[in-house]
Write a protein that binds this DNA or RNA. Structure first.
Lengths: 157, 157
DNA sequence: ATTCCTGCAAAATCTTTGCAGCTAG
DNA sequence: CTAGCTGCAAAGATTTTGCAGGAAT
């Protein structure tokens, strides 16, 4: 399973292949996405990189995330509440579990996705291209912490 | 299974119970939501009702849809592409199959939702509150129609 | 040298809110 | 009557786009 380092090299390789420039900002954005296990939002990526690139524009983050998405190297998780988070480690449809309190996102072990998609396709006659399996709830940490925010509190919006 | 008529009466009843006024606009919005099997968007509801209420504001549709949602009588389907559609017939988590071409939305017969949510909860330690199972693909009509739009073409955005 | 990229600011969406007058109960 | 609702317009929030200067190849 691709870890941060492997994914980074993989994505950089694909950018080269497609003739895209490897600017410091771009590389930093890629690094931020693949090194985080938090499925960061554009805002979070931007905030994190402002330390290194004080003038970096939000538009640049948007543009790069869109580029990576168009290359199939990042999965966009647009949630019902309007928040957007990105997964650069597993850029393919897979289930997510979201804590509605601290906004933590976990990738559960669950093989059902593929077969479920196939079953739905058979039942409806659709040619299924992709899917979203999202579960929303309260994580163990937040449950234990009571009403207050839990450990890795990270706002998605 | 609640049909349009049943749902309409049910929703009106709940509004009364909660002391909400039954304005003509509100009733028309409810009717539009429960009579459509198309999971309409706010824009679609508004467009449809402009014939009867030429001065009806988009804000009014938004406010009423939000009210119904807050009462648990409508399920909001916010999709990754930013489009929003509403289901007034089955206002509880259930799977959807979306045609990415004509934007048709189908409710597949699929019982797995509940048990899947439970399995995910067990596996992750989350207390699961709700879920979203969305499948995206090409419906049979669109497949048959080739590149052109299919029968009930309805833009979601 | 070229082509692509960045930062800034303006634009474009989509949704929410403030307010004055109107309406259902 | 009184609380709640509507329409209009303005405000918000988030994401996209135009442009001129600057970098990467």
């Amino acid at each position: 399973m691709a870890d941060g380092k492997g994914r980074y090299a993989q994505i950089v390789q694909k950018l080269k292949t497609h003739g895209h420039h490897l600017t410091p900002q771009r590389l930093a954005i890629i690094k931020a996405i693949v090194e985080s296990d938090r499925h960061p939002s554009v805002e979070e990526i931007h905030a994190r990189l402002r330390k290194t690139f004080p003038t970096m524009s939000l538009a640049t983050v948007y543009r790069n995330v869109m580029l990576l998405k168009s290359l199939g190297e990042v999965l966009a998780l647009g949630f019902p509440d309007g928040s957007n988070r990105y997964d650069g480690r597993h850029p393919f449809p897979h289930p997510h579990v979201v804590c509605v309190r601290c906004k933590k996102i976990v990738d559960p072990e669950l093989q059902s996705g593929r077969e479920l998609a196939r079953a739905v396709g058979d039942a409806t006659g659709f040619r299924i291209l992709s899917h979203r399996l999202d579960f929303f709830g309260i994580c163990r940490d937040c449950e234990a912490a009571g009403k207050k925010g839990c450990g890795a509190g990270q706002a998605a919006k």
